[in-house]
Amino acid sequence: MFNRGFLFLAGLSAMITTVSAQAESISTTIHHHYQAPRALGMGDAFVAVANDYSAIFYNPAGLARREDGQINLSLTAGGTPGAMDFYNEFQDIESSNQTEQQKQQAYLELIEKNYGEVYSMRIAPMEGFWVRPNWGIALIPADLSVEMAMHQQVGPTVNTTVYADTTLALSYADDMKGVNHGRLSWGVTGKFVNRGFYSRPISATDFAGGDEIIRKEDMLEGYTIDADIGFLWTPELPDSGLWSVLRLASPTVGLVVRNVAETGFGSSLKLLNKEAQSGTPEKLYRVVDIGTRWEYPSMWIFGGRGVLDVRDLGHPDFNWRKGVHLGFEFDWTVSTWWKGHYRVGLKEAFWTAGISAELGIFNLDFASYADDVGTRNTPVESRVYMTRLNLDF
């Protein structure tokens, strides 16, 4: 799966033809700068959990509550099941001995056959995290995602959106002193993001007119320096009466303001595209995420938590259907080196599920979730499957 997926994205990066006069693609998907399979399995509701290395991006305040260090190295790949089939058919047409006109007709029929479908792939060949009590650092050299939506506009077209991000992030967190009746933690993640971005509709004529689908010269590029600020609050409840039951659940509330500066990608290092640009990549939007977490009572080797988040408040494509995230996580622990998790949830009104298995330093995460790729009034499900291989120290 990893080899085919990586080759698919590599092929797309080496593919896209010049269509400079065209408008941007139409996409209503809310793109998240970072995603973790663990969170996605539980509805992508993680703001008030944030108790592993991914807290750097989900809620840096979680680092204030770490009691030990963690180094995580991983490879992540995911996508919609039909993406590889579409790419294979595309490759068959491209490598055939047909004339350009015959290829154009074949591409047109391929797009028409897939009308209404939205295919996506996302690969991060290497991610590195190092977190300790109160601080953390993350390096993601390449996070490449591609979305292709089949539409009938002037003619059959593929609305194509590509994000190619390189990220370096530093986090610091601590507890606020002098807080009565509970524990209040805060944290901040400063991040440098270099983004390559492509958003254009591609027609059958474009496909047939050249050997490339997307060229580096057609990608917009820029970098930004921004920050996320997060908070976690666990109230101190009375130990008598009904409150004692709630106290066992250790309710926690989280809040994160993402991309506080929202300065956009106005400057470029010209790592991908050395040519002059007529625009900038899609910015990191300033949004607010809020969430709650409730722990289940531990029984034998089992435990877990329930979570409810409202995410992406302030995003131009936000609505309540997309914003509400709900999840449940069930832990099981045989020993410190053998444990795992099961997860279910709702993300953008579609079901999610996930599983993790940890055996020593070798970890495997799997998640299935869906993006809402429809309009504000008409939800459309695009099912995605994601896998992450981890070395965890």
Rank of each mutant, 00 (worst) to 15 (best):
M121S: 08
I137C: 13
V158C: 05
P156L: 13
G128W: 11
L170P: 14
N180D: 09
A149N: 06
Q152C: 01
K177V: 15
S171G: 06
M150I: 06
V179T: 07
A142L: 13
L139D: 14
E117W: 01
E147S: 09
W130S: 00
V118H: 11
S171T: 05
I111A: 11
N180H: 02
G136Q: 14
V179Q: 04
W135R: 01
P141S: 12
Y163D: 00
I137N: 10
N114W: 08
P141D: 13
Q152E: 12
Q105R: 10
I137T: 12
L108V: 00
M121N: 07
N134S: 06
F129G: 08
Q152L: 07
Q153R: 08
T166L: 05
R132T: 14
T166I: 05
E147I: 05
M150K: 07
P133V: 00
V158T: 10
E117L: 10
A106D: 10
P141M: 13
N159E: 14
K177L: 15
M126F: 14
A106P: 04
N159Q: 10
T167K: 12
I137S: 13
M150E: 13
L170D: 11
A106I: 05
E117M: 10
Y172E: 07
K177R: 14
L139Q: 14
V179C: 01
L139R: 14
S145C: 03
A164R: 03
K177Y: 11
A173C: 09
P156Q: 14
V146Q: 09
A106E: 10
A149Q: 02
G182R: 03
A173W: 12
N180Q: 05
L110Y: 12
W130N: 00
P141N: 13
T161Y: 02
T166D: 05
V158R: 04
A106K: 05
Q153T: 08
P141Q: 11
G155D: 15
E109F: 02
D175S: 05
Y107Q: 11
P133S: 04
H181E: 09
